[in-house]
Design a protein around this nucleic acid. Structure first.
Length: 418
DNA sequence: TCTGGGGTCCTAGGACCC
DNA sequence: TCTGGGGTCCTAGGACCC
């Protein structure tokens, strides 16, 4: 019961490893998925590339400078989801208690599986071998008494390793590790702690919780303090439902015109509303984000009287909010580099409960009057797309400015279940 | 040469209510 | 007369995660 029975299994450099699997000429070589020496951003880097300092998120031209022999591949995004699902199936063979937290990693509780498969360390080794033999991908596994410890252990195990933290050695394991390995400590928190001379988890554990809270804020400070003291009560369980749904598009640098904004928001709203309708959900709060040249971004949100899930209503509300955000900026009209739309305050909404007009409401107000008609139109569009494909029908002229957009397959990889 | 896309949670101020 | 105390919702911003 109190033994080390939690596993954290994490595929190594997942996207890059898939590319190496699909094209053996890439194996053992530095590979970047996405980006190019001339632009774009690297989405994932193989371990050989990481050795040069190449990492996900950095601009392609910088990656090329760091590693001249780097091979850029566009990414065969369609292949990723099925391969990751096969890995999860392997994990599910040893226990039903699997909590998938992203496309490529999961927690397992194997406390009920040891009578069948042996001790947890053995189970972890078995899983690693099976994933390698049956799917062809390297996976690292951490084994410990808690999720936090197991997660840290798998990070320490990478690449392609296994680390078991026995309960009596937890303190020895944690104390010398950098605070940045803790789940929830990012660059900002790490820098703030470093200013106080706190760089290891052991040092954090020896700092009074009240002091940590002063540095990191009440909630984060208390949580990090507890984790440093190795208190982690979280159980392995299925992930909860999503609390928001969104979509975004980077635009390069463009002057915002009515046409551009409407085109982009129409596409984003179509994705978001379509996902909501597919799961019979809707939400009351619409939030947009506008990022300007220089990476500064602002958000505007509006909570409607009732939930929305129609493409046109969402587009209209988002449009109002985006112009509000842009018009609030002082000086000449700024260049826009990204638009995002998201819907939160989600509720279940059966197909029969439409966006009904609020009595006495202005019929032109978003989310009210034409709701029923719009819902019906969207349902028809959804049905046509289900039969004939996503490109079969849509609302908006797509002849407008060229917006560089990523493939839908890539977007879908990051979607959470609704 | 100039930064992808989808999410979660927390903070803080103001409006509003009892 | 110069202002209690607590709670909820909304909005904007930010850190963090994969």
């Amino acid at each position: 019961m109190s033994g080390a029975t939690i596993l954290h299994a994490d595929l190594d450099a997942f996207y890059a490893s898939v590319e190496q699997l699909l094209d053996p000429r890439l194996s053992g070589r530095p590979v970047a998925v996405g980006g190019s020496p001339h632009g774009g951003v690297v989405l994932a880097a193989s371990y050989e590339a990481k050795a040069y300092g190449v990492a996900g998120g950095i601009p392609g031209w910088r990656a090329a400078r760091l590693c001249p022999s780097l091979r850029f591949v566009p990414g065969r995004f369609r292949e990723y989801q099925p391969l990751a699902d096969r890995v999860m199936d392997v994990l599910g063979d040893v226990t039903p208690v699997v909590e998938r937290i992203s496309i490529d990693e999961a927690f397992l509780d194997v406390s009920g599986s040891t009578h069948l498969f042996g001790p947890p360390a053995r189970i972890a080794a078995l899983l690693r071998r099976r994933v390698r033999d049956e799917v062809g991908l390297p996976i690292s596994v951490g084994v410990a008494r808690t999720k936090h410890l197991a997660k840290i252990a798998s990070q320490v195990a990478k690449p392609d390793g296994l680390v078991v933290v026995e309960p009596e050695r937890e303190r020895d394991f944690l104390d010398p590790l950098p605070v940045g390995l803790m789940w929830g400590v990012g660059p900002v928190a790490r820098a703030r702690l470093a200013e106080r001379g706190i760089t290891t988890i052991g040092e954090l554990a020896r700092t009074p919780s009240s002091a940590v809270e002063q540095v990191l804020g009440h909630a984060v400070g208390a949580r990090m303090s507890a984790l440093a003291h190795n208190e982690d009560p979280r159980r392995v369980a299925g992930a909860g439902r999503a609390r928001s749904v969104g979509a975004q598009s980077a635009l390069g640098r463009q002057v915002a015109t009515r046409e551009l904004v409407r085109e982009v928001l129409g596409q984003l709203a179509d994705r978001v509303a379509g996902r909501l309708r597919a799961k019979d959900r809707a939400g009351r709060t619409v939030t947009v984000r506008v990022r300007f040249a220089g990476m500064r971004s602002v958000t505007r949100s509006l909570t409607l009287p009732g939930p929305v899930a129609t493409t046109l209503t969402l587009t209209e509300v988002a449009e109002q909010l985006v112009w509000q955000a842009i018009d609030d900026q002082p000086g000449p009209r700024p260049e826009v580099t990204l638009l995002a739309v998201s819907v939160s305050g989600l509720v279940h909404q059966s197909s029969l409960q439409l966006e009904l007009p609020v009595q006495g409401d202005d019929p032109r107000r978003p989310g009210s009057a034409p709701g029923a008609a719009r819902w019906a139109v969207d349902r028809s569009v959804d049905a046509v797309r289900a039969r004939f494909g996503a490109g079969a029908v849509g609302y908006l002229p797509t002849a407008m400015p060229r917006v560089r957009t990523v493939p839908d397959e890539f977007r879908e990889l990051a979607e959470h279940d609704l």
